[in-house]
Design a protein around this nucleic acid. Structure first.
Length: 468
DNA sequence: GCATGATCATGC
DNA sequence: GCATGATCATGC
């Protein structure tokens, strides 16, 4: 029985909207299917929604799911974090064919065809009973209306070039920002097109990165975003970053006071007053604005106070506090920490001494984007894994050492100190000593978070100064 | 009330 | 003056 008109976009969307609020079990009940349901199937939600709700049978053809109207169906699992409900993972778009990719043009590419129109079905997986998982939202998304298309296009070309030049075996999800070459199939090796360096490469798929899909999820949940891409006259991802840097770096050496006057930013005494000026310079309408493109690309902005004479940051840079018991269970590739360092816009603010607060004695430094290089990435991974081992081995045990504070003591753990690591370290990050966490072994410790080491940031700042 | 970015303060 | 444990203050 056909319950919708598959040649009408409107009919498909109207029918899809009836999914909202339904559980997978309810969909099965309505379909009266005789199919056997394998509860262990990882793509169960997708199968049930595709086959039992929309009546689309799995096909190996490369056509979109609703081929008459060119709409692709994507089932998006969500997850709960302390910041609310977010998209759980990357979204696979289509598999990569190393043998034919070199011949494709973006405009007619298989990837773009799949991306043109997507019907997103967002659902919340129920971990105790997968059939109780509920559909929360439906969204028909169109690439043609997206200024962000140029990011996807750029990433696609980057991946294509790597395949053409014989580097398919060195593809990595970290190569790109919005569309990535994600591993597909359990480490399966397939022949690559250009065999100059290696005959085979791991099988991969084109996938939307989590931040890209998550930005859309936020947008349809009434989070307001500003787009700066249209005002910047940008034609590529590289030029996006360049345009941002140009805006800031043309003003190098100017005092924050001067900049606040030029850019007409009212400043009080708040800690975020320097950030307020910088955001206005970049193009934010207000400090609280969220920029769509930064969100899509997973870019974090970090202001960093730096001592002028040697570029030494006044402090290490912190990340949000973690839950130790969750941290020890994480896989590095899927860790909560990894996306926090995937791309950071550093904006150094120079001053002579730590306690200088006057805005006319703070100067704008040379900003830069940082993505960990392969070697940096390896070090970070090792240090992260090492901390995981340390926590598992009970290094969160604390010893009280007498000192002259109100409490009369400080608590010292056995975790590696900043000086024992190269790039990242773990350090307390709570509201105060009563803001505590448990390690799962019976130890109680002040909430901890990852920090970027002072010396490492100093090196990055100096390296950037030497770059033309 | 809490999370987070930013910063303080002791002791070597 | 640095390293590191501890805490502040804004903003939601």
């Amino acid at each position: 029985m056909i319950k919708y008109d598959d040649s009408s976009e409107k009919s498909i969307v109207t029918y899809a909207k009836k999914l909202i609020g339904k559980s997978l079990q309810e969909i099965l009940d309505l379909s009266s299917t005789t199919r056997t349901i394998n509860l262990k199937n990882k793509g169960l939600a997708g199968l049930i929604i595709e086959k039992e709700w929309f009546g689309i049978e799995q096909n190996s053809s490369q056509l979109p799911d609703f081929d008459k109207v060119g709409i692709e169906l994507k089932i998006i699992p969500l997850k709960k974090t302390k910041n609310g409900i977010v998209v759980k993972e990357r979204t696979k778009i289509c598999s990569m064919n190393y043998m034919t990719l070199h011949d494709e043009k973006w405009e007619e590419s298989h990837t773009k065809e799949k991306l043109n129109k997507i019907l997103f079905v967002y659902y919340f997986p129920d971990s105790s009973d997968i059939l109780k998982s509920k559909i929360l939202k439906i969204d028909l998304w169109k690439l043609s209306e997206e200024a962000g298309e140029l990011f996807l296009k750029d990433d696609w070309h980057f991946i294509q070039n790597k395949v053409i030049t014989g580097y398919a075996h060195e593809l990595s999800g970290r190569d790109t920002d919005s569309l990535e070459a994600s591993p597909a199939g359990t480490k399966k090796q397939v022949p690559q097109f250009n065999t100059i360096y290696a005959d085979t490469a791991q099988k991969r798929a084109f996938s939307l990165k989590q931040p890209f899909t998550n930005q859309r999820w936020k947008e349809i949940n009434q989070v307001k975003f500003e787009s700066i891409i249209e005002t910047l006259n940008i034609t590529s991802l590289d030029s996006f970053e360049q345009a941002i840097l140009e805006k800031i770096n043309l003003l190098q050496g100017k005092s924050i006071l001067e900049l606040s006057e030029v850019f007409d930013v009212k400043i009080g005494q708040s800690k975020s007053r320097v950030a307020a000026v910088m955001k206005k310079i970049i193009g934010f309408k207000s400090v609280r604005s969220k920029i769509k493109e930064f969100e899509q690309l997973g870019i974090e902005i970090k202001m960093i106070n730096v001592r002028k004479k040697d570029c030494r940051p006044m402090e290490a840079i912190s990340f949000p506090a973690m839950k130790l018991e969750e941290f020890v269970l994480e896989e590095w590739e899927e860790s909560t920490f990894l996306p926090m360092i995937s791309k950071i816009l550093f904006i150094p603010i120079y001053k002579a001494y730590k306690d200088i607060k006057d805005l006319d004695k703070l100067y704008l430094g040379k900003a830069f984007f940082w993505t960990p290089s392969n070697s940096e990435f390896d070090i970070i991974k090792q240090e992260w894994l090492n901390y995981q081992r340390e926590v598992n081995n009970g290094k969160c045990r604390v010893t009280k050492i007498a000192n002259k504070t109100k409490r009369g003591y400080k608590e010292v753990s056995e975790l590696s100190k900043e000086s024992a690591t190269q790039i990242i370290h773990i350090r307390p990050h709570g509201r105060n000593s009563n803001d505590r966490d448990k390690d799962g072994l019976g130890n109680s410790i002040i909430k901890q978070s990852f920090w970027l080491n002072t010396k490492f940031i100093q090196q990055l700042i100096i390296k950037n100064l030497l770059k033309r």
